[in-house]
């Protein structure tokens, strides 16, 4: 029992059930505002009937030419609301928006190499490991860049694994 709607600035006051979780980062106001300002449609939240925030996704569209893609910057679910398919629902939303409204070639996301649970979930959703980004997280932990091709990429060239790891400096800075 939940409602999905646009993530608005006032939702920042309700993030505690989600963001008190160890693996969810809380950024400064400017970070969230830039997303809401530039890519408002991508920011979505799922709330329970009493207004408690259950989950949210932050995303954007970026890149040039064949690299024009949707990017999932954060997708997170409060501990009490896991295993309800909320993350899948929000990911599907981002994919659909990137595909139908923004006409992107693919959707990508970065995930900690150690986060095996999340990786297997993304794989189930059809994402593949495109490349490894070395020391992406705080110069310590590697990240997987995972991608899923959208309908515009008819030959699925965007998801052919790169075959080699790249350094974090080689990856364009994403918010």
């Amino acid at each position: 029992m939940s409602s999905t709607r646009r993530f608005t600035p006032s939702d920042l006051f309700r993030m505690n059930p989600v963001n008190l979780d160890k693996l969810t980062e809380t950024y400064n106001l400017n970070f969230y505002f830039q997303y809401m300002l530039r890519w408002p449609e991508f920011q979505q939240t799922v709330t329970s009937p009493d207004g408690t925030m259950m989950s949210y996704v932050l995303g954007k569209a970026e890149g040039r030419g064949r690299e024009w893609h949707g990017h999932v910057s954060a997708v997170t679910v409060a501990p009490g609301y896991r295993r309800l398919g909320l993350a899948t629902k929000l990911m599907a939303f981002t994919e659909s928006l990137s595909d139908e409204t923004y006409n992107c070639y693919f959707v990508d996301l970065f995930v900690r190499k150690s986060n095996s649970l999340a990786i297997s979930m993304y794989k189930k959703m059809g994402y593949v490991v495109y490349r490894t980004i070395l020391q992406y997280y705080g110069g310590e932990e590697d990240a997987y860049d995972m991608r899923k091709a959208l309908s515009r990429d008819t030959n699925r060239s965007s998801v052919v694994p790169l075959g080699k790891a790249v350094r974090s400096e080689e990856v364009p800075l994403t918010m």
Binding site: T8, S10, P40
Partner: peptide, 18 residues
């Protein structure tokens, strides 16, 4: 200011209320 410049009136309104 940025929201108004970009034409995101909704966002500007929400920032003011926030």
């Amino acid at each position: 200011t940025k929201a108004l410049e970009f034409g995101s009136i909704n966002a500007a309104i929400e920032f003011v209320l926030f």
